[in-house]
Design a binder for these strands. Structure first.
Lengths: 245, 245
DNA sequence: CGTTCTCTTGACCAGCATCAAAATTTGTGG
DNA sequence: CCACAAATTTTGATGCTGGTCAAGAGAACG
């Protein structure tokens, strides 16, 4: 079940001694824009949620009264078509913000892939905080800008890249997403299933599997386990990803 | 050639008698957030550009020191891969804002499809105006949110829809984009070529042509001319677009 | 250690791409 | 306004990438 641990007794601390002050995800969250003095205010608004693998944060059709900030672990968001076709919208890690799209009703589902923690904010309260601390709105706009850039890259991938190029792009761009993990250079951790990768890249799981094999045969990557890859030839991987082959 | 008509003598008018006050695109631009009193400030920052069909606003690799607001006509933005594969990122009409992605160097090209007019702003000056008039930043964030929603819809289209569904989605969603045109219900104007539609939908021009034919045979649409369609059965079109067939 | 789930591999097939040519539209000069 | 040239669109024939179906191999879990 989804456990909920709000600020103790619901009252803000005077000094920034709350959870936000110790939050490991803060440096790469929009919260980083706030001065230390303002953290107690953030604390007062944040509800801490803990999700177990497979647990749902929200579903398609739920009214979207909240915003979320991922503080640890990872989540997937996806959309379903009427006949069951699935598109995985994205994979979310610590520091990622959910709710930039500003829709009143969720049009996608969000579930934990691994044990995850998330901060939840009421939209109205968040809006008030943004009005009081404008740097927060500026930080959110900057984040929205980055997301739009990433969306354009992903659209190019979906519109024009071959299956092999898609998988190569994925292996190249995924590392660094989870900024809480000490990044071992060349190592790619895959907390998601092949099916999820496929639904993210717009192909089938068999095609993902075959593409990975081709990359392995070419010596571009080496497989340590189902969820762990090593990039042996980063330059070659990137060249394939960009279609320069 | 690209003609340039800045504010006469570079000095701001005291009362809002400038071009912004009379701008037809203002109601559906981010500029709509500004009070009438602030329009002379906007006027002082805006350079008016006129583009002929096929003319370039900016190219991939150009340094992105400006932001743009489309005030009439239409443009296309696209990206190219090393081997020439093209992805049309989007079609832009009056009211659309260019530069939300905030990148320092352009990663796409923008060209006029029809005669078009565009307002150009220096990023630094625009930033200063946003700092002075916060509603502007809020309006920009709202617009970024809408773009992210649209990007998610387009990603679903590219990842999971069939060719027929893509073309149906396009015909359903394009009208209303050009808010300057008096919208004749059921009429779809296509100021772009088949190739551009194809590159936008991630298929080939032949597939677009064949899909249109299937829709015509089914009586869902009727063709008036190459650039003008009539939707005869909107419900059927939408059902096809959403894969409910 | 067996059950179940996920991943891999193979065989076959279909949707869309590619190649090619005809039809239509657009543009130009007389 | 017409005739011709160029560009775009439509239509047809064929092929390939990636999807579908199916079976077997590993992992994960109790």
């Amino acid at each position: 079940m989804l456990t909920l641990s709000g600020t103790p007794f619901g009252c803000a601390q005077r000094r920034a001694t709350g959870l936000c002050a110790r939050c490991e995800a803060r440096p790469f969250s929009v919260c980083a824009s706030l001065a230390a003095d303002d953290l107690d205010r953030l604390d007062a608004l944040a509800e801490r949620l803990t999700l177990q693998p497979g647990e749902t944060l929200f579903r398609d059709g739920d009214s979207a009264g909240h915003l979320f900030n991922v503080t640890s672990g990872s989540l997937r968001t996806y959309r379903l078509m009427a006949d069951g076709r699935r598109h995985v919208t994205g994979f979310l890690f610590a520091g990622d913000f959910i709710g930039l799209t500003g829709e009143a009703v969720h049009r996608s589902c969000a579930e934990a892939m691994e044990p995850a923690t998330v901060c939840r904010f009421r939209k109205t309260e968040w809006r008030a905080l943004m009005d009081a601390r404008r740097v927060l709105e500026t930080a959110l706009l900057a984040r929205a800008a980055r997301e739009l850039t990433a969306a354009a890259d992903h659209a190019l991938l979906l519109a024009r890249k071959t299956a092999l190029e898609r998988v190569a792009s994925f292996l190249r761009d995924l590392p660094g997403s989870d900024r809480l993990r000490p990044e071992t250079p060349g190592h790619v951790r895959l907390p998601m299933t092949r099916t999820e990768i496929a639904d993210y890249l717009g192909v089938t799981l068999e095609t993902v599997s075959r593409s990975l094999r081709r990359l392995k045969c070419q010596g571009v990557i080496r497989q340590l386990s189902l969820t762990e890859m090593v990039v042996e030839k980063p330059a070659a991987l990137s060249a394939i990803a960009d279609g320069e082959v």
